[in-house]
């Protein structure tokens, strides 16, 4: 990693921004994967990206559970209607109540849910940079997942990041379907409603 860090540091801010923004812009949710396993070192790099995500007050109240066993993944899929593909690995982000107690914080603090999003997004961007496909999934049964994975009562499963090698797929669009939103569609300047 030393060499890539060194080469990145030698770039101008503009060049670094181009690289980062290109990775962000070209990432898509991937729901079709090949059977090829995801290498452990790739999973580690994805996890590292999640670890470096911002968290409210630098609280670390989440834990990542990595699942690679195909049989377990198949069972997880059965109780996860939001999981459309068959990934090779899953990172399950859990709220850890032991950590919540240690942090002397409150579970219902909404930034805890925001943190799940920032961690998942970092992981998905890293996965894309590594040539992997990823998909966030919250549409699963929490009680079913806790039972399947023998989670302790102190862990609440919140979000899965699916990982795998993307399978070739062409998205079929309806003629006349709505086009993508632009930055201008989403942004107001200085006052809500002002577009310039």
């Amino acid at each position: 990693m030393e060499s890539s860090s060194t080469s990145l540091a030698s770039l101008t801010a503009e060049q670094r921004a181009d690289i980062v923004l290109d990775v962000i812009r070209t990432r898509r949710v991937v729901r079709r994967y090949t059977d090829e396993p995801v290498a452990d070192d790739q999973i580690h790099r994805v996890l590292e990206a999640g670890r470096w995500a911002t968290t409210g007050g630098n609280r670390r109240i989440h834990r990542f559970l990595v699942i690679r066993d195909p049989k377990t993944i198949r069972l997880m899929k059965m109780i996860s209607p939001g999981m459309l593909g068959a990934p090779s690995a899953i990172v399950l982000i859990c709220l850890d109540h032991t950590a919540i107690d240690a942090e002397q914080t409150r579970e219902e603090h909404s930034s805890g849910l925001v943190d799940v999003g920032t961690q998942a997004m970092n992981m998905m961007v890293a996965a894309h940079a590594l040539g992997l496909g990823s998909c966030p999934v919250t549409s699963f049964s929490q009680s079913g997942m806790s039972t399947l994975l023998d989670l302790p009562r102190t862990a609440t499963p919140l979000l899965m990041v699916l990982l795998g090698h993307p399978a070739p797929h062409t998205r079929v669009m309806r003629r006349g379907a709505r086009t993508r939103l632009t930055v201008e569609d989403l942004t107001y300047w200085e006052h809500y409603g002002h577009t310039s």
């Binding site: 059965m78 209607p81 939001g82 699963f140 049964s141 009680s143």
Partner: peptide, 10 residues
């Protein structure tokens, strides 16, 4: 069955 029951919950 699992898909339908989980879907009902969701």
């Amino acid at each position: 069955l699992a898909h339908l029951v989980a879907s009902a919950e969701l």
